[in-house]
């Protein structure tokens, strides 16, 4: 028997049901006392969004309060991140922190108004995954050699989910390896960019594996290279960059963070629940299906990881001369 949401049925006659009843009385009740906003700093339909929704579902069951996923895209994920950095640290506003918002954008945008380490309470690493170059099936690009040849001949356009994403940096890096810059076309999130590649408006795209996975399987785009060290178990047919003679190994990562000064009990509780969720078979298999692997870091480990990524990507961004465009 299906579990019917009782309140929805009861409220149905009044047509305005079911928006959780805990009343704001002014006295701070035990956390979480109201729905939790999970800010996703990218557009819906992309990897970040996917992972947020994947984790939000089991998490809200464990916490007993709905988690509302809110997409705040823009400017290399810095718009949504700033929002969380400035939020009240009461555990009701959280961020899906990621490589773009917390490692690349700080180096890429000189004028960022948050510090990726100091302005956040980092809670848990959720998942790591490789990037993949995909091509419009009728563009005549089957592998990196095809791409390099065509690119040297006439210069190719390459789409990404936005300036400052790790996928954008991969484009810049590949350009500097090939000795000619790609014409980078930033979109507002991976969904719209993928549409343009499927429709043949742009021949190439650098995307994170999770958001590209279903389109690769369906054959609506052709995967030409994966940025993992080894071939990916879920995509044994897709060769790596290394196999094709380019020493490029990158992974993008996604985690859970809140504003700085988040009370320790809240951080611990979240870290515990998330770790339990990542340990379940269903989450693992869902993550594997879309090409990610679960990460298991304590809050301290995750904070240290973010700091090390900031230190890693800063020089890389300056070296490649990547600019927001």
């Amino acid at each position: 028997m299906v579990q019917w949401p009782r309140r929805a049925i009861l409220g149905g006659g009044l047509a305005l049901p079911a928006l959780a009843r805990a009343r704001a009385t002014g006295v701070q009740a035990a956390w979480p006392s109201q729905p939790i906003k999970l800010i996703v700093p990218f557009a819906p339909g992309g990897t970040t969004d996917l992972i947020a929704r994947l984790v939000a579902t089991p998490l809200q069951e464990k916490l007993g309060q709905p988690i509302v996923v809110e997409n705040r895209p823009g400017a290399g994920a810095s718009v949504g991140s700033l929002l969380v950095a400035q939020a009240v640290p009461d555990g009701h506003t959280l961020l899906l922190s990621n490589i773009a918002s917390h490692a690349i954008s700080p180096a890429l945008y000189g004028n960022l108004r948050y510090d990726p380490v100091r302005d956040f309470s980092h809670i848990a690493l959720l998942t790591l995954n490789p990037s993949v170059f995909v091509a419009y099936p009728r563009a005549g690009i089957a592998n990196l050699d095809d791409m390099a040849r065509l690119h040297r001949e006439r210069g190719l356009d390459m789409a990404s989910s936005g300036s400052g994403s790790s996928n954008h940096l991969l484009i810049v890096r590949m350009g500097s390896i090939l000795g000619r810059e790609f014409n980078h076309i930033p979109f507002r999130g991976a969904g719209p960019a993928m549409t343009a590649v499927i429709g043949g408006q742009v021949p190439l795209m650098s995307d994170s594996l999770p958001s590209a996975a279903s389109h690769i399987r369906q054959g609506s785009v052709k995967a030409i290279a994966m940025s993992s060290a080894e071939r990916h178990p879920s995509f044994p047919d897709v060769p790596t960059f290394r196999e094709q003679g380019h020493d490029v190994v990158t992974s993008s990562w996604f985690g859970l963070s809140g504003p700085a000064q988040l009370p320790r009990p809240i951080v611990d509780r979240l870290s515990r629940e998330v770790s339990a969720i990542l340990d379940t078979h269903s989450t693992r298999s869902r993550l594997a299906e879309i090409g990610g692997s679960a990460g298991q870091y304590s809050p301290e480990e995750y904070a240290a990881f973010v700091a090390s990524e900031v230190a890693l990507w800063g020089p890389l961004v300056r070296e490649t001369g990547a600019k927001p465009d």
Binding site: L16, A24, Q34
Partner: peptide, 16 residues
């Protein structure tokens, strides 16, 4: 009735 009882928007009812 509409906003507090049904929609449950989160505001203070009385002065804080």
């Amino acid at each position: 009735w509409v906003f507090i009882y049904e929609l449950d928007i989160r505001v203070n009812l009385w002065p804080q």
